[in-house]
Computed example of a mutant assay.
Amino acid sequence: MPDPFVSRSLDEIRFWSRIMKEHSLFLKLGFRCEDTQLINEANNFYSVFEAIENKSHLFTVDTDPQVIRTFNEEVYIAAANIWSFKRKVLGLIIQCKLPGGNNLPLLVDHTSREANYFRNRLAELNQGRLEPLPDAIIDENVFFLRIMADHAKFIGHLLDPSERKLVEQARNFSHDFDQLLYQAIDLDSMRPQSQTHPLLDQFLDQNRVSVKSLRDFKATARDLIDACRIKSIIHPLLADHVFREAERFLYIIDAFEISLNQSKM
């Protein structure tokens, strides 16, 4: 039987190392041409996470767990380093030291939250201290609902204002996911009394419906951007990037649903 620790570690690294690699590219594209040091740092992180992504595919679920534990430690350092870089960039933007750049403060903060999530997950795996299911359901949904709300805001902002219908749809998704996030935060503050099977089951069902709708909207936007059928400044890779993160959230919701039903039985 494959070791769950190994398979879970490889799954997390393969997904998030690609995300970190793409963050490096997006940040670089948002810097001014004179920001050569920051551009070089972003390029370096792109290479680091590309190498991590490639290395992760050399392992299998039958790899020695100790080898994977060591790999996790290496990746943790890289995730911590890119988190520090993103927070440095955020500070420069907020202090008006990068005037004229195209990296939105919320976008930089968003990418740093994902880097922090990644490094924390690696630490939890190596320490064998994953959260109990009820806690994980709430915490993961709070994290990803905010990510989805951010995505809707970014899409609405980066579409050309003349794409009025799509901009309106993005704003509606932003509002919907803000509301879902507030509900999740309320559920969080009511712990542990809120962690009943019926409430958690409804929580997952409700979020799944909204995430599927947003995922489909992102898929449509991605395809329209690829075909040059709408006006925007959204990089085609960014359109695919946010689509994959919605798919990831749906995968996590479905996995929680299965585990929740098994625990009930």
Rank of each mutant, 00 (worst) to 15 (best):
103 N>A: 02
47 S>D: 14
228 C>T: 11
106 L>E: 12
264 K>R: 14
228 C>H: 15
26 F>G: 00
202 Q>N: 12
220 T>K: 11
120 N>I: 08
25 L>K: 11
193 Q>A: 09
66 Q>C: 09
221 A>N: 09
40 N>C: 07
102 N>K: 15
205 D>M: 13
92 L>Y: 11
172 N>Y: 09
51 A>K: 15
239 A>N: 03
66 Q>N: 15
209 V>P: 05
163 E>A: 02
143 F>S: 05
144 F>L: 14
61 V>I: 07
40 N>S: 07
127 Q>L: 09
133 L>D: 07
170 A>Y: 04
78 A>F: 04
241 H>I: 10
71 F>Y: 09
91 G>L: 01
84 S>I: 11
241 H>V: 02
17 S>V: 12
74 E>V: 09
188 D>L: 13
263 S>E: 15
11 D>A: 12
119 R>Y: 13
208 R>G: 02
39 I>S: 15
48 V>E: 07
134 P>W: 10
40 N>H: 11
194 S>C: 01
128 G>C: 05
12 E>A: 11
207 N>F: 06
198 P>I: 08
259 S>C: 07
189 S>N: 14
242 V>A: 05
202 Q>R: 12
113 R>T: 13
42 A>Y: 01
238 L>C: 04
229 R>S: 12
46 Y>R: 05
117 Y>R: 10
27 L>Y: 03
29 L>G: 04
185 I>C: 01
214 L>S: 10
220 T>N: 08
34 E>R: 10
244 R>M: 04
7 S>F: 02
72 N>W: 03
227 A>C: 07
175 H>Y: 13
154 F>P: 03
211 V>D: 01
216 D>T: 12
210 S>I: 00
88 K>C: 00
69 R>P: 01
245 E>H: 08
192 P>H: 06
199 L>D: 04
51 A>G: 09
155 I>W: 01
228 C>M: 11
121 R>N: 12
244 R>Q: 15
166 L>C: 00
49 F>W: 14
255 A>H: 13
6 V>T: 07
159 L>S: 05
248 R>V: 02
105 P>Y: 07
25 L>Q: 07
171 R>E: 05
175 H>Q: 10
206 Q>L: 09
222 R>N: 05
251 Y>R: 14
259 S>T: 09
218 K>F: 14
19 I>E: 07
182 Y>H: 13
263 S>D: 08
89 V>Y: 00
223 D>M: 03
138 I>D: 03
133 L>N: 08
187 L>E: 10
123 A>Q: 09
105 P>M: 07
238 L>Q: 00
214 L>R: 10
35 D>R: 00
219 A>G: 08
182 Y>C: 08
89 V>G: 02
185 I>G: 05
119 R>M: 15
51 A>I: 02
49 F>K: 04
84 S>G: 03
111 T>C: 10
75 V>K: 00
84 S>M: 11
57 H>M: 11
205 D>Y: 14
8 R>A: 13
57 H>I: 08
18 R>D: 14
202 Q>L: 12
196 T>L: 03
39 I>L: 08
133 L>T: 06
161 P>M: 09
23 H>E: 06
180 L>M: 06
148 M>T: 12
97 K>M: 14
165 K>A: 13
164 R>A: 14
